[in-house]
Amino acid sequence: MLNFLEEWSFFGGSILLILIGLYGVITRKNMIKILISLALMDTGVNLMLVALGYVKAANAPILNSVVQTNTAAFVDPIPQALVLTSIVIGTAVLGLGLALVIKIYDKFSTLDISKIRGLKW
C-alpha cells in the first residue's frame, strides 16, 4: 500500500490535475473559470515534470555546507529549470487572458461565454 502510494501518488495526482483542468476548460462557461482550469493544467504538468526528475533519497541540486561535493546523489536539475520557465510563461498567459476577459466584460457585461457572440465553442 505504502509502496503503491509512493510510486503512483505524484504521477497519478499530476495527471489527474491536468485532466481536471482539461475537463474544466471544455465544460465551464465562465471565462474566469476557464482560465482557472488552464492554471490547474499548468500546475499539473509542472508537477509532472519535476516528479519525472525525482531520485529517491537524493539531495536537492544545491551544493552547500552539508552536501559538499558533486559525488553525492542529486535529483535532476534540468526539469526544475524547465519548470521555472514554464511557471513564468503560464503566469504571462493568464495575465493576458484576464486582461482580455476584463475588456470582453466591458462590452457584454457578462462572463458567460454562451452569451457572447463569437465565443461559442
Binding site: N46, Y54, A58, P61, V83, L84, I87
Partner: peptide, 11 residues
C-alpha cells in the same frame, strides 16, 4: 518534497 526548493519558491 520533490527536492526542488527553487521551483517551490517560484510556485
Amino acid at each position: 518534497f520533490l527536492k526542488a526548493p527553487d521551483v517551490a519558491m517560484t510556485e
